[in-house]
Simulated scan of single mutants.
Amino acid sequence: MRKTMKIGGVAAIAGAVVAAAVVTGGPATGQQDPHSGGALNDAFASAAAEFDVPRDLVVAVGYGESHLDGHDGKPSQDNGFGVMHLVSNPARHTLEQAAELTELPAAALRSETAANVRGGAAVLRALADEQGLDGAARDRLGAWYPVVAAYGGARDDRVARMYADTVYDLLASGVTAKPGGERVVVASQAVEPELGRFANVRALDDVSGDVHAQDYPNAIWTPASPANYSAGRSQAITTVVIHVTEGSYAGTISWFQNPDAQVSAHYVVRSADGEITHMVADGDTAWHARSGNPYSIGIEHEGFIDDPSWFTDAMYRSSAALTSWLCDTYGIPKDRTGIVGHSEVPGNDHTDPGPNWNWDYYIQLVNGG
């Protein structure tokens, strides 16, 4: 079992890319689309081969984190970077870990896609070694489930399980993405996740054991850290503020549970299916919009403002149903006076939800259209 995987820095990438010409993926992968080629496909293939991680698993983790978009090296909400979302914040240091494992500079891991993919694969392999996966186990896609759960970095086991479930759902359904015009494919495949200790962890959307649900009845109650919001309200609720997470659903939930974050929102909406997690009670003051905090409800939507692929119809409809309920409950106008973007709240420097958010459609849905 390898304990250290420092492999050669930038020169190793060149050698690994050559290997990608003959190695189409790591062990136990699905069939790769024969028409897929290009720099990103080469990066996934070479990183998978170098670190003995299934190629399809690396792609699925990256797709769940970023839709395979590096966002020009700009950080996510919790200071994660690139296709593989390598994180550097007070609680997580996968960026620094990747730099140590690959001997690549942090700047390259943040901004260069091939380096970032290689760093993500290196972290996955290091976690596999910590979990005791030997060569035979690494050949089974299902055996990587606890590793994937750990890669998400959640403190809450239920959130960690949700993160891993999302990746395995992607493996089951398949992935087809065209970041930058390059086609990247993971064929759908039947994989039985080996849950390990997570077999005894209740799924996040299983509310059967919850003591109570807060406010909106169609949301999952997963509270943020008390260090990230203020108890009570100093003003009446008059406004709904629309945000975009600049990160993944699971990552945002995990970040709001981290007491170092000093940020939160009342609700988080998932892109794929519109699932809603409620994290701060409506009667408490989430820290999401600076001057707007005392009088507003904040709704975060999974995704990145520069990538419209995250704004699915399921997300729009689920969020609009929530906003309609909030407006009815608190007497908020169902128009652009009562429903605003983060960028429109006075004293804020954020740009979300950005130009790809369809305001006309959203307001129509809020009003029952």
Rank of each mutant, 00 (worst) to 15 (best):
A154K: 06
T329Q: 15
A213W: 10
I237L: 04
V87G: 02
V263C: 10
E182Q: 08
S291H: 08
C327M: 07
Y267G: 02
D205T: 06
F51D: 06
S324E: 11
A289K: 03
E112A: 15
V123S: 01
A14T: 12
F304W: 11
G298P: 00
P193Y: 09
E112Y: 15
S271M: 01
E344A: 14
V147P: 05
Y361M: 13
P146C: 10
R138A: 07
A108H: 14
A60E: 04
Y361V: 05
V87L: 04
A250Q: 09
V345I: 04
Y163S: 09
R336Q: 14
W310L: 02
D352H: 13
L95P: 06
G38D: 11
P146N: 07
Q257M: 02
V10Q: 14
H67P: 11
R125G: 00
S188L: 08
N218W: 13
P27C: 04
Y216G: 07
D56G: 01
N258S: 10
K74V: 10
D328N: 14
D215W: 07
G331I: 10
L171S: 07
G38L: 05
S254H: 00
Y168T: 04
A48T: 02
S230L: 15
S271P: 06
G73M: 08
P333D: 12
I7H: 09
N293R: 04
T239V: 06
P193V: 03
V263R: 10
R290M: 12
A107I: 12
D282A: 11
L68I: 09
P105L: 12
V61A: 01
S111Y: 13
S248M: 05
L326G: 05
M162H: 14
D215F: 06
W144V: 01
G70K: 12
T239G: 09
R290E: 10
R110T: 12
K74S: 13
D352V: 15
P179N: 03
S234P: 08
V184Y: 03
D52W: 03
E130W: 09
H288R: 05
T4Q: 13
N356W: 11
L124F: 01
M84K: 08
D134Y: 02
V61H: 00
N258C: 08
L40S: 05
A137D: 12
Y362L: 08
N367T: 01
R110A: 14
W325A: 09
M1R: 12
V241G: 06
V53C: 04
A43W: 01
V58W: 00
N228L: 03
G26A: 04
T102G: 02
E300C: 11
F51Y: 11
A99T: 05
Y216C: 06
W255I: 01
D129N: 14
W287F: 11
N89I: 03
